[in-house]
Write a protein that binds this DNA or RNA. Structure first.
Lengths: 188, 188
DNA sequence: TGTACATCAGTGAACGCGCGTTCACTGATGTAC
DNA sequence: TGTACATCAGTGAACGCGCGTTCACTGATGTAC
């Protein structure tokens, strides 16, 4: 049942996209190759026609996930005055809906600890994705280039930590309190 | 080879302590019951004399890890003027040595994503541990009780995010930059 | 205090299970003439 | 353009492996008299 070249590329893309969701929802260890393939409407046997290992897929999925997130956040800042843009990006990232939708959200908040233990290639992809995120905030900050960069690194990692902890906390009131506190601290 | 009551309690304690290190170093999925038992000088068969499941051990290990961290950080703030205490707690948490010593460090930075997906009991223990951490900063802040609490929640989750991302980033310079940026942002 | 017996901490092997990966096979697609 | 053949995307079963958990067993500890 060989497929056409175009169809093959579409299949590959679909696997990566589905993997990006499954991995964020269940974790790197929690999402199996068979899970991902079946969520993509395929059987596990075909996996190695597209990827040389699960780690390679994880790297590509992590790349796609961070790009999708950056694009979504940049759309929230596009064509707004700097202060408003920053506020909207932060509010969007630290929202209840982002907290509750693991599978389409920030890969760093979902997988951070696992990424830190992952292989070199995955960590490189993750680092690039993190820098892409920080650039969104850095672009509309004021001050010297280095102070803007520094502030963006701190703000981005603070958002990641706050979203992650809001997900850890079971108590709804406290979870909201963490999101609100982080929004206040970053938009002050 | 039955052991005395005292020895049994010591063994149990040792398993939890060893587990707290193994789990932080390898992740919840990455650290197996057999790994942990053998690191404690035992064989895996004896595990269920002490715990009803791996999840129960994870909960207890998470509790111990967060208490150990809180105690260590509080020691850094004890008997110092508020501003200096805060600065020292933050510098200690956001240090290179904390970044490089996963197994004896912050369980939230090491396991955050996995804790968010863990069972209710583990998440409750994690939440208590997080609040214990925030209290260290809240105690020596100024302002109203609610603003101190809010600031402490934001600062603590920001530190967790920064430490975690500093561990994800492979490039040493950039990793240091993240730690420094977070220290600057929080001590300003 | 001494003896007989019940308890149970720890061992080591085994359980079923799901993992990542491999492989023989199928049949539509792509290529060569 | 048509035909013969090579390629290879996808299937489904199997591989070895390590996981969490169970279990029969051992022998020192704790208990009862």
């Amino acid at each position: 049942v060989r497929k056409s070249r175009e169809e093959t590329l579409n299949t590959r893309k679909r696997i990566v996209e589905v993997a990006a969701e499954e991995l964020r929802a269940k974790g790197i260890d929690g999402a199996g190759v068979a899970d991902i393939m079946s969520a993509a409407g395929l059987t596990q046997g075909g996996f190695y026609r597209h990827f040389s290992s699960k780690d390679q897929l994880v790297a590509e999925a992590c790349d796609v996930a961070s790009k999708t997130l950056s694009d979504a956040l940049r759309a929230h800042s596009q064509g707004k005055p700097p202060h408003k843009a920053r506020q909207d990006v932060i509010s969007c990232y630290l929202s209840t809906s982002h907290r509750d939708n693991l599978s389409i959200g920030c890969p760093f908040a979902a997988l951070g600890g696992e990424l830190a233990r992952a292989d070199a290639n995955i960590r490189e992809v993750a680092t690039e994705g993190f820098l892409r995120l920080t650039n969104i905030l850095a672009e509309q900050a004021h001050g010297s280039e280095s102070s803007r960069r520094s502030e963006a690194l701190a703000a981005t990692s603070a958002m990641i930590g706050a979203l992650m902890m809001a997900r850890v906390i079971k108590d709804e009131t406290l979870s909201q309190e963490v999101l609100q506190a982080a929004r206040d601290a970053l938009c002050r």
